[in-house]
Amino acid sequence: MLSNLARLVRYRGLIQSLVARELKARYRGSVLGFLWSFINPLLLLLIYTFVFTKIIPNRNELAQPYAVFMFCGILPWNWFSSSLMEASGSLVSGGNLIKKVLFPAEILPLVSVLANMVHFFLGLTILIAFLIYYQHWPDLAGLFWFPVVVLIQLIFTSAMSLFLAALTVHYRDIRDLLSNLLMFWFFATPIIYPWQDENVKIYRWVFQMNPFTHLAVSYQEILFFRGPVGQASWLLGLGAGSMLLFFATYWFFDRLRDSFAEAV
């Protein structure tokens, strides 16, 4: 298993070009091409702004401007959920590769995660533009935490992706199950409502069981709220847990590896 992990490092060139291919292929043939990576989140943010300031104004004074607050949580969530959806189908749709070309199968789900990470970064530029527009300056000290949160989310998402990808090969129902589960998970995470809300505080311990809570709240604390990053200890715990989870799911993936070429 460890030698397989080491082999992954040798294949970084392939991962790199597959991620590039994924990104290129996504917008190939469209007129605006790569600009869509910016336009999509921009339009989303504009719609939220309109709806939550004009139609149903969100008066929660903890989270103003509301659209920007929400966007801080939605961007990482989109990275997470799209990664899981794509990764879970990656081995099945890449079946041709697994059956005909010799290369480590875990590359495929990881490529899904990384390609979505690039989209996350592109969406981030839109968020920054809006933060500047609203003159909503984040804490500089907090920004130090930003790469840490991204790294932890990367490890956590990769771990989940490996597990789901391996399982989907054998149980195709995972994909449908997953889309419903993700919907539930989204509302169970403080993304569209602030974590500090009185109503949320009652169920705080439930929220703390949800790993993505700590990620979402951390992003909000770093980018949106002025003040210290209160999730630091939770975050580091999650980081350690994600590492363990990654090794566990990688082991699981490794166990099932030989069955992929036959089952996809």
Binding site: S17, R21, N96, K100, L102
Partner: peptide
């Protein structure tokens, strides 16, 4: 292995890019 030719080709991108990716693969 010349088992399935062009197994890793992605239809949307150019032959040039596919040569590189296939070669790396």
């Amino acid at each position: 292995a010349l088992i399935e030719l062009g197994a890793g080709f992605h239809p949307e991108i150019s032959g040039r890019e596919n040569v590189f990716i296939n070669g790396i693969m």
